[in-house]
Design a protein around this nucleic acid. Structure first.
Length: 638
RNA sequence: GCCGGGAUAGCUCAGCCGGUAGAGCAGCUGAUUCGUAAUCAGCAGGUCGCGGGUUCGAGUCCCGCUCCCGGCUCCA
C-alpha cells in the first residue's frame, strides 16, 4: 500500500509503504539523496532511516543546513564513545549531544581522562570513520532495551530508559558493533565525518546536578569538510586574541593578584581612566534623564539584611559578617536597601514620583572559586544600579523611558544587535497574579515602544516580579546580557514603602531595579573584547601619540602636545631614541587611535602627518586642520 | 565547591631519567638622528607560587594550601 507525504513546496510525493526519509530524498533527486542527512517530519527532526506515514509533512535536512551539522556532531559523539570504550573497557557512557560549536560526551570512567588520552581517542575515532560503518536505527521494546543495557552494565542508560515517557518509542542506534540508546538522528555512515578534533576535558555532573556523581566530559567538534574545521579553529584564535585578560595585561588596564585574593580587581591607571570616562558619561546622562545620584555605604547591619530578605534568600552569596559594637555588619551584595532608606527618609507625594535613584555602587558577593573569570565574574564589583519608585499605574510609561535610555546608552558604545526577553512569573513567587499579569503586560508593551520585539522567557522571572533582560551582540557575534529592568513587588512590602496619593491616602509604590551595563567590571571586560582592545578615541586612555622623527623635532612636538592638551586631548609624546618604524610599531601595538608624525618637513610646513590606528598613513595636515580632525575623532557620542 | 590542566625573570616560554636555571621581548647604559609596524652593542634581572616531606642532593618526586586556565553549577 502506497503513502503520500507533503513537501515544503506543497507538492505531494507518492511513496511505497514503509518508505523512509532516505527513500523520499532519493525519489526527489539523486543530488538530494547524496546530501540528505536527516529529515523534518511534521516539524520534528527525525533520522533519515525513519519510516514515513501517510499524510506526513516532510522536509529534507542536508549537509548544507545548520541542522545537518548538528546531526553530524551528534554522530561524532557516538563515534567518540565507541572509541573510548574500545580503548578504556569498563567506561560507562551517559549522554553525548551536539552543542553550538561541536559536541561532547560524558563518561563515567574511574580515574578520569588525561590530556594525552585525547590523541589516542582521536586516532581510534579515525579508524572508525575510515571503516565507514553505516548507522542503523532499530526500534525496540522497553524490556528489550533494559535487558540490553543491563547486560552491558550501562547503568546510566538503564536509569534513563526509566525516564523516557511511556508513550514514546525507544530506539537504539548501531554503527559497526557499537550501540547506544538514542533517539537520533544520525548521519548515514561514519565516513561522512571529514574533519574533527577533540578540544577539551572537563568534569560535569550526571544530569547537571552537583549532588550527583561527577562524570568526565570530552569536548570536540566535527565538520563535513576540513576547511570548515580550519575556519572554526581560526575563530577560536580570534576569540583568544580578544581575550580581555590577555589584553588587560598587555595594555596595562587591570590586574588581579594572588596576594589580594581571587576575584578582586586592581584597576591600573589606563583602565581606571577608561572607567572614569564611562562613569562621567553615565552620570551626566542620568542627570539629563531625571535620575538623582546617591552614594551609600559598603556595609550595613544584620537587621537591614533581615528586613530586606537577603539573609534569608541570598546569604550563601554574602561575605561573612564582621562584629562591631555587638552588632553584625555585612558587606552589601546589593544597593537596594540603602536606596529604599533614602526614599523612606521623608513622606513622599505622588507629585514627586517617579523617584529615580542611581548609584555606581560597589558590592561584594561570594562566588564559588571555580566560577571566577577575569573581569566577567568577580567577587567585588560596581553595579551601575538604579532604583525607581513608581505608581503602579505609571509603570509602563516609566519602563519605556528606562528601556529607551538603556538602548541609547548601549548604542553609544557601538553595540547594534539587541535581543530582549520578558521573563514571567516562576512557580515560586510572591504577589497577586493580577499584579503580575498587569506588570508583565506593561513590560511587553514597553519593549515594543522601544522598538524591541521581546521573546518570552516563561517562568524565568525572579520570585519578586517580572523583568526585561536585554542582550547585545559583540563584534564577533557573541551575546552578552547587559541591561535588566526588574519589577519588584516584594521590597516595597517588606520595607512598608508608601506615598501619599491624590486621594490623600497612603499607597504602595512599585519598585523597579535597573542596570544598564550590569557591572562596570564585566562591561569593561566586554568592551575590551568587543573593540579587541582598540577603544574608540573618546574612550581611549591615550588618544594621540606624537612621534618625532629626530631629536631636532622634539621641541616642536612638545609644544604641539601642550597645545592639544589645552583642548582636553589625552596626548603623549614618544621621545624615545628609536627609529620611526619602531615608534609606530609600539603605538600600533598599544592600540592608540591617532598618531601624529613630525619630521623636518612637517615642522617647516607647520603641521604634522596624521596616522590612524589599524588604517595607516593619512598624510600631512596643516596645524589647524590637524587639531580640528583630532578634536572631531575624540568627541563623545551624543 | 567539584573534574581536568597549570604556576620558572616584568611578559611569552625552554629546562630530558633528581646533580644547583636559560632564551626572546620589555628594562637600564652607550652608540646612532633615522619618514610610516622591530638600529646596534653592552649590562642588569630569579627564595623556580607558598608550606611541609622523601633524598647526600628537589624547579624536577610526594602531601597540603593559594592563585590562574577550561568546564560543571551559578550569575552582574
Amino acid at each position: 500500500m502506497g503513502i503520500a507525504v507533503k513537501l515544503p513546496d506543497g507538492k505531494v510525493l507518492e511513496l511505497a509503504g514503509g518508505a523512509t526519509i532516505r527513500d523520499a530524498a532519493a525519489a526527489i533527486g539523486a543530488r538530494l539523496a547524496k546530501d540528505a542527512v536527516a529529515g523534518k517530519v511534521n516539524g520534528e527532526v527525525r533520522d533519515i532511516r525513519t519510516p514515513l506515514k501517510d499524510g506526513d509533512t516532510l522536509s529534507i535536512i542536508t549537509r548544507q543546513m545548520p541542522e545537518g551539522l548538528n546531526v553530524l556532531r551528534h554522530s561524532a559523539a557516538h563515534i567518540m564513545a565507541d572509541a573510548v570504550q574500545r580503548l578504556f573497557p569498563g567506561t560507562k557512557v551517559t549522554f553525548g549531544p551536539a552543542t553550538e560549536t561541536g559536541f561532547y560526551y560524558d563518561f563515567d570512567k574511574p580515574g578520569g581522562f588525561q590530556m594525552e588520552d585525547l590523541e589516542k581517542i582521536e586516532a581510534e575515532m579515525a579508524k572508525i570513520i575510515a571503516a565507514d560503518h553505516a548507522f542503523q536505527r532499530v526500534e525496540i521494546s522497553r524490556d528489550e532495551a533494559i535487558r540490553l543495557f543491563q547486560e552491558k552494565g550501562e547503568t546510566f542508560k538503564v536509569e534513563h530508559i526509566g525516564n523516557i515517557p511511556k508513550d514514546e518509542a525507544i530506539t537504539i542506534f548501531r554503527h559497526g558493533d557499537w550501540v547506544d540508546l538514542c533517539e537520533g538522528p544520525h548521519i548515514p555512515s561514519t565516513g561522512w565525518i571529514k574533519a574533527f578534533k577533540l578540544t577539551a576535558l572537563a568534569g560535569a555532573y550526571w544530569r547537571g546536578d552537583e549532588r550527583n556523581p561527577m562524570l568526565s566530559r570530552v569536548y570536540g567538534s566535527a565538520f563535513f569538510d576540513q576547511e570548515s574545521l580550519d575556519k572554526f579553529l581560526v575563530q577560536q584564535e580570534e576569540a583568544k586574541r580578544r581575550d580581555h585578560r590577555k589584553l588587560g595585561r598587555e595594555l596595562g588596564l587591570f590586574s588581579t593578584v594572588e596576594e589580594i585574593g581571587a576575584g578582586l580587581v586592581l584597576w591600573h591607571p589606563k583602565g581606571a581612566l577608561v572607567r572614569k570616562l564611562i562613569e562621567d558619561f553615565w552620570r551626566e546622562e542620568h542627570l539629563k534623564n531625571g535620575y538623582q545620584i546617591v552614594y551609600t555605604p559598603h556595609v550595613g547591619k544584620a537587621d537591614l539584611w533581615k528586613q530586606s530578605g537577603h539573609l534569608e534568600n541570598y546569604k550563601e552569596n554574602m561575605y561573612a559578617p564582621m562584629v562591631l559594637d555587638n552588632a553584625d555588619y555585612f558587606c552589601k551584595p546589593m544597593n537596594c536597601p540603602f536606596h529604599i532608606h533614602i526614599f523612606k527618609d521623608a513622606r513622599r507625594s505622588y507629585r514627586e514620583l517617579p523617584v529615580r535613584y542611581c548609584e555606581l555602587g560597589a558590592v561584594y558577593r561570594y562566588e564559588r572559586s571555580g566560577v571566577l573569570h577575569g573581569l566577567m565574574r568577580v567577587r567585588g564589583f560596581t553595579q551601575d544600579d538604579a532604583h525607581i519608585f513608581v505608581q503602579p499605574e505609571k509603570l509602563e510609561e516609566e519602563v519605556v523611558g528606562a528601556l529607551k535610555f538603556c538602548m541609547f546608552f548601549l548604542r553609544a558604545f557601538g553595540f547594534t544587535g539587541f535581543d530582549a526577553y520578558v521573563a514571567t512569573r516562576p512557580e515560586k513567587a510572591i504577589g497577586e497574579q493580577s499584579a503580575w499579569d498587569a506588570a508583565t503586560a506593561a513590560l511587553r508593551k514597553a519593549c515594543e515602544a522601544a522598538g524591541l520585539n521581546p521573546m518570552l522567557d516563561e517562568g524565568g522571572g525572579a520570585f519578586y516580579g517580572p523583568k526585561i533582560d536585554v542582550k547585545i551582540k559583540d563584534a564577533i557575534g557573541r551575546a552578552w546580557q547587559l541591561s535588566t529592568i526588574q519589577v519588584d513587588f516584594n521590597l516595597p512590602e517588606r520595607f512598608n514603602l508608601e506615598y501619599t496619593g491624590k486621594d490623600n491616602a497612603a499607597h504602595r509604590p512599585y519598585m523597579v531595579h535597573r542596570a544598564m551595563l550590569g557591572s562596570l567590571e564585566r562591561f569593561f571586560g566586554i568592551l575590551v573584547e568587543h573593540y579587541a582592545g582598540a577603544f574608540p578615541a573618546w574612550l581611549a586612555p591615550e588618544q594621540v601619540r606624537i612621534l618625532p622623527i629626530t631629536e631636532r623635532n622634539l621641541d616642536y612636538c612638545q609644544e604641539l602636545a601642550h597645545h592639544l592638551r589645552s583642548f582636553g586631548v589625552r596626548v603623549e609624546l614618544d621621545s624615545s631614541n628609536e627609529k620611526l618604524g619602531q615608534k609606530i610599531r609600539v603605538a600600533e601595538q598599544s592600540k592608540i587611535p591617532l598618531m601624529v608624525i613630525v619630521g623636518d618637513k612637517d615642522q617647516t610646513a607647520g603641521g604634522g602627518s596624521l596616522r590612524e590606528h589599524g588604517k595607516g598613513d593619512r598624510g600631512f595636515l596643516p596645524r589647524e586642520a590637524l587639531i580640528e580632525e583630532i578634536k572631531r575623532s575624540a568627541a563623545r557620542p551624543s
